[in-house]
Computed example of a mutant assay.
Amino acid sequence: MAKWTRPKAVPFPNVWRKCRGWRETEDGKIHKFSIEDVPQDMHEDIIEFLTEFHFHPTYGSELMKNVKMYEDPTAIKQYQEKWRKALKDNISLVAFLEEEGQGDKRLIVGVNVLKVDYKDHPENFEKIESKKVRSIGQNLAYAGFLVNVYEIYGVDKLVNALGLCVHPKFRGQGLGLQITKCRFEIMKAVDLKCTLTVFVGTGTQRIALKSGFEVIAEVPSDSYKDEDGSLMYPGLECKSWIAMVKIVE
């Protein structure tokens, strides 16, 4: 099937939502945020943000910390290439801090990289050089397609995600939830009906459920094992990899 492209009738880049933090941050302020399309001239800024915070040994995602992604330059490079490719679909979201007097420099405080996947073109993980990245991809795909989402919901493409990340200083403000809800807004605007994501993190799983995702499959984290029988993700706080779907009408 032909590759999906964003309809020209939908403004780009677009502002999807303005919101405020739930509570004061350490500086005593309640901040304002703007959630927007990722501008094409900011792709490398987005990748730099994700590289710093998504893989961080303290602030990174549960899964990336568990596999010590920050110690693997080859794996990081391959994730960066995956992000570059996904950003070209022009449906990814960025949250900016809105402050008076901040000038032209806009501070990125949150990112959700989104991409379009196709029924007839599943990802070929065997081509991925890094064993760590290849295994994660295969395990996400296993959890995501225990249920045949394409057949059940009658779609030939869907929106998937390659990371939801909020700046550590602005966590606990409801920003992750706001960004996730914006996914549905952009999908409706560009006429994409189905989104599927496997959430591997207690925080992101809570956000997904609050935003309206529904659970379709669940795989215990300790069921993933290496060839020698050892656990792939020992000590992972998240006990299950949960596949969730949302249909946007």
Rank of each mutant, 00 (worst) to 15 (best):
H31K: 07
W22I: 02
L158K: 10
F184K: 12
V149I: 03
P234E: 04
D27T: 13
I128P: 14
R106C: 00
E26F: 11
E24H: 15
D120F: 12
Q173V: 01
V113P: 08
P11G: 02
A86P: 07
E98I: 00
K68H: 13
T204R: 06
L50W: 07
G176I: 00
D45K: 13
Y79K: 13
L164Q: 06
D37E: 08
Y224K: 13
W83F: 14
F170G: 09
H31I: 01
E52M: 07
S61C: 11
K77S: 08
L93W: 06
R134G: 11
P57Q: 12
M69V: 04
R183G: 12
Q205W: 01
K127H: 06
R206S: 01
R134K: 15
K193E: 03
E99W: 02
Q102A: 00
L140Y: 10
I30G: 05
I30P: 09
L87R: 07
R134S: 04
E44H: 07
G137W: 10
K77N: 14
K127F: 09
I186Y: 08
K193Q: 11
L146I: 02
C194Y: 13
T180K: 14
T5D: 12
G229Q: 13
I216P: 06
D37A: 05
S230N: 11
L164W: 09
N160G: 14
G103R: 00
V166G: 13
K88N: 09
A95Q: 05
V248N: 13
